[in-house]
Write a protein that binds this DNA or RNA. Structure first.
Lengths: 154, 154
DNA sequence: GCTGAAAACATCGCACG
DNA sequence: CGTGCGATGTTTTCAGC
């Protein structure tokens, strides 16, 4: 993970469709050397996948909500976690520090869909004690581009 | 946005490197018809970009925190929003309903980096009254794959 | 580990069903 | 609107440094 790899990963997060010729310029390397770097980044698991980035509104899920959940302590939370993983409206589910147990990020079509999710999917889960819904009024920023750290060499 | 477009967008979110031949099979269409669909989805802004999906740990930002922020009411929040947009450790920033004003999603290298972010970047912003940090202990699920709704035809 | 060129492949454009 | 073929450009491979 040297400076060249860092430049490559940043560039590929911004635009993965540019092609190796353009990427080689950014890296300051030849085309085949660049291709080898990219291949190694994939093999090492740094690059997990190549994805199309969709517009949430165009995809039909303009409503964004974060949901704080408290699950009864002492219970087996495996069932809850599996249920969250299965739900494709649940984009994220993190176990967190503080008063709450989980924080969810959920994308939905509209308020009826939110109502249905809260009642049928979330509160229906055994162990769920308390739920607080934070509705996003405006999204100031939403990116999946990670700041690649000048970190560990290998 | 018919069933075929839906299948295409789902497939391209899961793996955008497969190529048109493979995608045509999923779509049940010819290669060139599939290419035209993809092109139209890009033109319509449904597909915003093609990106490399990185592993956060390998990228050197294993620490994930969500931060709730209260900004003093009546103030001009443009400066705050611009500051959040500039920070590349801030992956998301949403204005939300409820007791808090904003919810941030932040990825960092370690706890010293979090300390620096809270003191130098966040609390340094004028108008910031209250901050609560939710540290992610475990990530049950984290995806950027949107559930493409069987929604509006065009 | 990087370079450069040749072979293999996928994409794009056009005429046709 | 979908299909198939040819032209173009890109990725992949390989010998050499």
């Amino acid at each position: 993970m040297d400076e060249i790899d860092r430049n490559i990963t940043v560039a590929l997060q911004l635009d993965g469709s540019a092609g190796l010729a353009e990427l080689a310029k950014v890296a300051g390397l030849s085309v085949s050397a660049t291709a080898e770097r990219v291949k190694r980044l994939e093999e090492r698991g740094v690059i997990r996948a190549w994805r199309a980035d969709l517009d949430p509104v165009a995809a039909g899920c303009p409503l964004l909500v974060h949901i704080l959940v408290t699950v009864a302590p002492g219970r087996d939370e495996t069932a809850f976690r599996m249920a969250m993983r299965r739900q494709e409206t649940v984009l994220e589910c993190h176990a967190i520090t503080g008063d709450w147990t989980y924080l969810l990020k959920v994308r939905l079509a509209d308020l009826p869909a939110l109502d249905a999710f809260l009642n049928d999917e979330l509160r229906a889960q055994s162990g769920v004690q308390r739920v607080e819904t934070l509705l996003a009024i405006a999204t100031v920023k939403e990116t999946s581009i990670l700041p690649v750290a000048p970190a560990t060499e290998e």
